[in-house]
Amino acid sequence: MSISTNPWVWIMGIGMVSLFSFIYKENAAYRFFEHVFVGAAAGYFLQMNYVNILDRAWIPLVAKGRYSLLIPIFLGLLLYTRFFKRYAWLSRWATSFMIGIGVGISSFGMINAQLIRQASAAMMPFLVKDKLGVILWTRSANNTLMILGTLSVLVYFFFSYTPKGPVKEVTHFGRWVMMLTFGVAFGNVVMGRISLLLGAFERIFGTWLGLL
């Protein structure tokens, strides 16, 4: 392969190398392309929301006469009263509307998906047997660890009482379980970032410089 002659690929390559130069030291090229990226992300996000307003509010209002959509349009416009000190308080109506939606959706979702389903998933047998009645020791040990681990994490988060004696030991176990969990999450994040880095290197050394 040879070096790319496509100007778009050069824009990509120069931008990516400039962004990676931050690893060595913050510099003018990094700051410039960082601003380009922030602007691009904001513009793309803004355009997506423009399409949302057009498709979900303006077209149904004008073409289908759905006048109830004047309510969210009015609330949305009220957000811009923030720029006028005298009427800034009106923007609270729109904020409160969004908070109300968040509360309504999340409170049921949290209780249903996070609390009830997670609690019911934690209710498993300590001893697991196969069809012949033979105890499956590995699965039983895993189940026991999961039940005791979940309970000890919950005890750790019970702040209404200062843990003493055996309860304190339980909170210690809960903390160990959480540390292992955070370690797993951290390992996964690092692996995810490394795969992004490999993809970026492939673009620079392969697509742009033609070395791969």
Partner: peptide, 29 residues
């Protein structure tokens, strides 16, 4: 580690999180 230990910790954290989020939602409501 992922399927047993991580699930255990996540479950405990998620249950605590759900109770906290529900309490906050009720306070807002």
């Amino acid at each position: 580690l992922l399927n047993v230990v991580n699930s255990t910790g996540q479950r405990g954290i998620n249950i605590g999180l759900a109770i906290g989020a529900f309490a906050t939602a009720m306070r807002l409501l």
